[in-house]
Design a protein around this nucleic acid. Structure first.
Lengths: 253, 253
DNA sequence: CCTGCAGCCTCACGCCGCGTGAGGGTCAAG
DNA sequence: CTTGACCCTCACGCGGCGTGAGGCTGCAGG
């Protein structure tokens, strides 16, 4: 074989592409070998090698092969091509940044144990649901065994599971309001039963003994937003809930 | 048609996809209609609609349809999928940022009239080449006819053309140094000839009369970096070049 | 010369996620 | 019945190759 000429395999190795790629470039007229041996072997000369270098350069900039042909053989200003490509890639970049951010948010949701899309969360919990609650709770309780338990248990909950949780919590709230407005006293049989129901709800998330329940209630009734929410249901409800939980806890410790 | 069931077109419009897409999802088993009418029409129920919402959500996060199937029907933790996808997209993002930067550099090179890749520029001009020179020149001369001419002429120059320019410029510099160190006086026949050679080199870029040449030399010899470069060749060379150019210009104006 | 191995040839289907018709049946309203 | 919107299956195409199959070529060694 003549010196200075490359067979397809040799050129492929030199340029870091496959034989198939060179075949393909020949087929579409992008890079045709300057010669063929008597056996039909493709033979590429130095100019071919130079051209392939340019082809790969532009290809690697993201241009389609049609565009590479136009760049090398067309009479339009390459700067036009480059500007178009820049705009196209910039848009893709922006889109991809959005995707990465979306996945990060989704990963966060999974880490926090809720497998619902934001739309689903809104659907289940309504407008009052604020993801910030969970962030705060994690910040406060994140190192506790209870938190870990909660994460483990809610991991596999579906939308329906969460729907059920909400319904039970709503029902409990209604019963609490009812008893409160009926004048039920902390420490009474009925009050204690409600406090136990409240603890049972917590137990869906983690093992809650009376001491832990007391801690949780102290926290929620001391929090401005939780208080505001309970007070909206019935003025004084917040403190009353705390009182019945504490009275019941006293009886069990 | 029964209420609560969707035909393919209706669902496609609702979900913002094409009929073909739904056909395709049926073919690959990703979303099969729960029913078919007597005429063979696809009929999708509410669960199908729900499933399509999830499919599109993950598809839009960049997952391939195989992966979407695994996410919806597999038993692995979706968080694993999300982490894989996050890594993959992050890598693509990094690569794309590199591409955008490369195109911007290439655009810069084109705006400055040099059609060489950065590698080629380094090869031709060596380590002393600083693209900032051209930026400054453009800032100073960019509104002049000479600059426009220069851009027009150099537009189609190849690597070989630039190589030749550099060689001729180097040769001229060597002759200038030689004459200067030999004590050739400004205004002499030999000095004038060299000044004309200098102007001929400028003429490769634009029409340079003696007045313009005087202006250019005034600029270059007044510039710290140009001076330093000439002084490194021979102390006093910078002022001497200015003197021979001015003497020659005086003779021609 | 034969054999074996590396390299080459053309042909051709496949990938991924659809886009785009062709040819023809279905449904409902006028 | 006609008409127009909607539906069906079939199938080729897109971009840039990957991956064989079947067979020829070149060269070194026995």
């Amino acid at each position: 074989m003549e010196d200075g000429l490359y067979t397809v395999g040799r050129l492929a190795r030199l340029a870091g592409v496959t034989v198939r790629t060179l075949h393909h470039y020949g087929e579409i007229g992008l890079l045709e070998p300057s010669e063929r041996s008597a056996a039909g072997y493709r033979l590429y000369d130095a100019d071919d090698v130079e051209r392939l270098t340019r082809i790969l350069y532009y290809r690697d900039l993201g241009f389609g092969l049609d565009d590479v042909t136009a760049l090398l053989d067309g009479d339009t200003d390459p700067a036009d091509h480059l500007r178009d490509q820049h705009r196209l890639l910039s848009e893709q970049l922006t889109r991809m940044q959005g995707l990465v951010a979306a996945i990060e948010r989704e990963l966060e949701a999974h880490m926090s144990g809720i497998r619902l899309t934001p739309e689903e969360q809104l659907e289940v919990f309504g407008e009052s649901w604020d993801p910030a609650y969970r962030d705060e709770a994690q910040e406060r309780w994140g190192e506790t065994p209870a938190w870990a338990q909660s994460q483990e248990r809610t991991r596999s909950w579906t939308k329906e599971d969460w729907q059920e949780v909400k319904e039970r919590t709503d029902a409990l709230e209604r019963r609490l309001v009812e008893a409160f407005t009926a004048g039920v006293q902390p420490g009474s049989e009925r009050a204690d039963a409600l406090a136990e129901d409240h603890r049972a709800e917590l137990n869906r998330f983690y093992e809650a003994d009376h001491a832990l329940q007391r801690g949780v209630v102290t926290f929620t009734t001391g929090d401005e937003r939780f208080r505001a929410r309970y007070e909206a249901l019935a003025p004084g409800l917040s403190d009353w809930i705390r009182a019945i939980v504490e009275a019941n806890a006293d009886r069990h410790t």
